[in-house]
């Protein structure tokens, strides 16, 4: 046990300020937390859906949870079910074998159903393109609020996109979700 305590004391806190433009980052982070609480009445919850990625994007989404970026410190956390989620973070390209599962996950998500497509493949199919096996971009299967290009996008970019979507998402919160067409 003492080794563990020593490790904790020796390491200290490594968390870096959240990536928001104004000068006083901490105040900004607190403001985001307040906004999230006011709008959603709780912390922002995210469900990650890998719809066919090479798993590179997942490495960076994991990294968003590491102590440097400390997503949970901003009142944002990943949850195990779409039914508990305000936002879907989707990586692609959407494989045809995953298109139905992605659509069902979206349907199971309650409002505001924010969707962020992560990575070049989620944006436009990336190097895999569209084929007998790939539908391509996430937006061909479910409505997307924001895309984060990059192969894979770095954690700071993913974090920025999550924060920006939360803010923009409030305004549309009461609007009905767009009609979805699924391919295939």
């Amino acid at each position: 046990m003492w080794k563990l305590v020593k490790q904790i004391v020796r390491t200290g806190v490594v968390t870096e300020p959240a990536p928001v433009p104004p000068d006083d980052c901490r105040q900004e982070a607190e403001r985001i937390q307040r906004e999230i609480l006011q709008t959603l009445g709780k912390a922002l919850t995210i469900r990650e859906v890998d719809a066919g990625s090479c798993n590179g994007c997942e490495l960076e989404i994991h990294a968003v949870n590491n102590p440097y970026y400390n997503l949970e410190g901003l009142g944002i956390k990943f949850v195990a079910s779409p039914r508990h989620a305000d936002m879907l973070l989707v990586t692609g390209p959407v494989s045809r074998n995953m298109a139905v599962a992605l659509k069902r996950t979206y349907d199971a998500t309650p409002a505001p159903k924010l969707v962020v497509a992560v990575g070049d493949c989620g944006c436009d199919g990336g190097i895999f393109g569209e084929s007998y096996a790939c539908v391509g971009s996430v937006s061909r299967v479910i409505p997307v609020d924001r895309v984060v290009p990059g192969c894979p996008p770095e954690p700071i970019e993913i974090l920025r996109a999550i924060l920006a979507t939360v803010r923009a998402g409030y305004r549309q919160k009461d609007e009905p979700a767009p009609e979805v067409s699924v391919s295939p």
């Binding site: 066919g52 390209p93 494989s95 599962a101 190097i127 895999f128 084929s131 007998y132 096996a133 790939c134």
Partner: peptide
């Protein structure tokens, strides 16, 4: 098989010198 992306077929449409990226 959920993530099958047709990579083998995709290789055949890329120049051989670019295949390392795929």
């Amino acid at each position: 098989g959920y993530k099958h992306k047709g990579i083998d077929k995709r290789f055949e449409t890329l120049p051989a010198g670019e295949g390392y990226r795929l």
